[in-house]
Write a protein that binds this DNA or RNA. Structure first.
Lengths: 196, 196
DNA sequence: ATCCTAGTGGCAGAGACTGCCATTGTCAAC
DNA sequence: GTTGACAATGGCAGTCTCTGCCACTAGGAT
């Protein structure tokens, strides 16, 4: 099998996946998360309901994909920071970088709008957090090889930036800020003042 | 209507509620969160499935009750701290206090065990976080009346202790520590070192 | 004894999700 | 171009969650 054919398949799958996701978000925005059924989404995307579940494990799963997409890049951003940089600076730079990517995505506002209006959608979004935390925690753990209470520290260091990111993005959305970096900087400046 | 009869009614309701919850947690521990159906729980608690849903909005809802119970007390603990105390100290004292209460509950270990083993259960547990955050954020907002970016700050101050609490409790459970205060103190000491 | 009301159970039905099997398409070797 | 494997899809049946509705019952108030 040639390399291109394999990639072609993968590309086509991604196409279907995107079609489903886009259709779903649009329907959520138009009709509300709760009133939209999986059948609606499948029909709008031109696939069978059965196929929907082959691409997404649940209806709520759709709400997390916006963030999960940047999972590797967040971990990578953390790993890429210089080794002697303080944890605080690592978090700050990584969050700033990812926040900008998230804010740049055309449908980010739609996703947040849905999550804001529907508690069920927001919960579904949060359902991805354990997975996300684990991912980030592993990235931090590599910087902590000889630290006391490695895992406790890693988990805390994973939870903080995710909380900061979440707070920043929601504030950015609700207040119609132009530059999300500014909001994120504010969050970290507040974080820094905590001990002072 | 006399005062006592109303209280009696409430007491009876709480009895049913506890019966359902206890039965559910026991079943979860024994058979796993996913394999237990609502019918199982209802039968084990001696009520109809229909009644189950009058006490808990969903099967997953059961997983959050352990924490939600302390919702008001956490907010109250925050409000009770002296007004000139730093945010950091407010968080520290409040979390320590609540952590001790949570750790003292006889079924806390069971709940964490279930949440640890089943991703679905953990997600259901996290589903209560928005509600919880909102609650804590309101408590902090009262301390911030004249602060810039009130709500951004309040949300961050709500997210941090909840993250700290979550991390501390899980670590305490997994490492079989005797005193959860020590673990919580460690978390906050790590938090304090962040800017230093 | 008789209302009145809150709590309950049963029933029907929608929607989420899964396992299974048949069908279709796609690529590769012939 | 035909064929043969293999992945993706669709349809179907069935389970489970959750809700609206209505009938029933128990306990307190009158």
């Amino acid at each position: 099998m040639t390399d291109s054919s394999g990639k072609l398949q993968a590309r086509k799958q991604q196409l279907v996946r995107d079609a489903i996701w886009d259709a779903a978000i649009d329907l959520f925005v138009a009709n509300g998360f709760d009133s939209v059924t999986v059948d609606d989404i499948a029909q709008s995307a031109g696939v069978s309901p059965r196929t929907f579940f082959r691409y997404f494990s649940s209806k709520g799963d759709l709400m997390g994909q916006g963030i999960v997409t940047y999972r590797e890049q967040l971990a990578e951003a953390i790993r890429a920071r210089p080794r002697r940089e303080s944890h605080f600076e690592v978090m700050r730079h990584s969050v700033l970088q990812i926040a900008e990517m998230v804010a740049g995505h055309p449908r980010t506002r739609s996703v947040i709008a849905v999550a804001t209006k529907s508690p069920g959608a927001r919960e579904a979004q949060l359902a991805h957090r354990p997975q996300l935390e684990e991912f980030v925690a592993r990235a931090f753990a590599q910087r902590l090889r000889n630290s006391r209470q490695n895992d406790l520290r890693a988990r805390l260091l994973a939870g903080l930036p995710l909380t900061a990111l979440d707070v920043a993005i929601r504030y950015w959305y609700e207040h119609g800020e132009e530059d999300i970096r500014k909001t994120a900087e504010n969050v970290f400046s507040m974080l820094g003042e905590l001990t002072g």
